[in-house]
Nucleic acid binder design. Sequence first.
DNA 1: TTTAATTTTGTAATGATTACAAATTTTACA
DNA 2: TGTAAAATTTGTAATCATTACAAAATTAAA
Lengths: 135, 135
Amino acid sequence: MNTKSAEILRAKGISPSVQRVAIHDYMMTHFTHPTVDEIYRDLSPIIPTLSKTTIYNTLTLFLEHELVDSLTMDGSITHYDGNVQSHAHFQCSQCGEIYDIPMPKTEVPQLDGFEINGMKVFYYGICEKCKKKEI
Amino acid sequence: MNTKSAEILRAKGISPSVQRVAIHDYMMTHFTHPTVDEIYRDLSPIIPTLSKTTIYNTLTLFLEHELVDSLTMDGSITHYDGNVQSHAHFQCSQCGEIYDIPMPKTEVPQLDGFEINGMKVFYYGICEKCKKKEI
DNA sequence: TTTAATTTTGTAATGATTACAAATTTTACA
DNA sequence: TGTAAAATTTGTAATCATTACAAAATTAAA
């Protein structure tokens, strides 16, 4: 039971159950943009009764409290990101890996009457590793 | 049978079947970011035997030939866009509608050894229509 | 404690997408 | 033009991610 995660949850008014603390701690130590399945695979050995429904519920709760972010870069699987600082993402179309990259500076679009409260920037291409394999 | 669409397909080396021409023509006249279901709903009265599988296959083919673009803004449904010119998108979190907006100018990120060949920019917020309803 | 509220769990349902094989249509060319 | 081969479409079934839901377990409150 990670005390740091428990405190962060309590500070948000979220009661720190074993599952929530474990998932929060996982997200704070794995900035690998995991999917629900990956989290389940890694945590179920530690919490044998853990169910995927709990992971879905918990991540939705964390999203509402802005403790995590979600991204769907390829139209099928939702990835979660424990890094909620502003940054962009790059996905390699060869190996599928998602990399964090700095958020490019942009002017805020002028949309009269629209309220903007979020932005996601995705880049696509081939990563260095896969580039090297090509040769 | 739209001649213009048939020609565009032929120019790409795609044989212009009735279904492909109809779907292409639909995308060139409905810049509403339709889903497969919406396309199916609108075209099946015209082509009664049309199947969703064909729509999926055709859109995948069009994606490969860069005749359309796809976007998954909310993690669940894939929307297709007949406008392949560079532009960004805004989705209203209230009504779900997707708006085209100009692509903001950005510096290209410096990623040594990475090959970038695509970029997607999504904004989220509340659109003018829903803003007015709030009052 | 006892009760109420919250949280988790497992199963079933849903919804989008893909696999696949049969049927149909199109294309190539004799 | 006729025929065979290739390409395309179709419908159904399967898959995969996600959600619904109600029962069980846990936690909090009185």
